[in-house]
Amino acid sequence: MNSSTNIKYRIGKSSGMQILTTILAFSIVIPLILILLFILKSGIQHINWQFLTNVYKPAGEPNPGIAHALLGTLLIVVLASVVSIPIGIMCGVYLSENKKSKLAYWSSLCVDVLQGVPSIVVGIVIFAWMHQRFGYFALSGSFALGIMMLPIIIRSTEETLKLLPDSLKEAGFALGMPFHRVILKVIIPCGFSGILSGIMLSIARVSGETAPLLFTAGVSHYLSSNVFKGPMQSLPLLIYDYYSLPSSETDPNSFINQAWGASVILLVFVLLLNISTKLITRKWKVQL
């Protein structure tokens, strides 16, 4: 009799625990949904074709747009990726191949430290190195974002490749393949989905970065595609800039409402990247 009540008590405790975890899991989704809904509600009505294709107009003029920031973000992020993807993958390959070497130990430590460096610090360092000599230019912004992307790409590449069985490499070597071909033709293709998801997450992560661009690419109200000279606007900085300009809530073309519109664009871009990462990873996953 005693043991049966004991079991009943434990069953009750167990289901109570399950309900609790479900509630807590759901409760973390609520703020996310609230933020998404609020940004969509505030920004979506300001988005139209002209908003995407026109550039900055002084307060009061009709049909302003954010094309200069869209182009800027695109250029800066693409250039950052061009620099950091090859370096990041190579470094990840090195770390997964040489687990015990001294250089691997120190590089791995550096990657950890780099991951923890606040983005504003990365920005100010690049500022000190470049701005004081060359002024604002978009490439320095790409450089700062590239540095922020590196640890994410390196870690995801390393972790993906470490999971591949050694037997795959041995199969390659036993067929007389040299090391570089084993890496390029066997190891990287087999871990491709993991590497790619790291790349896309790192892009999603840095395309919303504001601090490193503040001192490097700067703020601009003009459409510019010259990455070597002059400031270039980007989406996060446009939001920051417009939010601090005087404007009215009621005027649909006011800066504050443009900032909401730009927030929606940025949010949708990042969400799409995250979702497509999930889809691509699933589709291209190599069945081991």
Binding site: L168, F173, C190
Partner: peptide, 18 residues
């Protein structure tokens, strides 16, 4: 050259999954 002349088969089947 050695490995081109002397082939090898391993304990666990390891076809290239990609």
């Amino acid at each position: 050259f050695v490995r081109l002349k002397i082939g090898m088969v391993f304990q666990r089947p390891n076809p290239f999954p990609n």
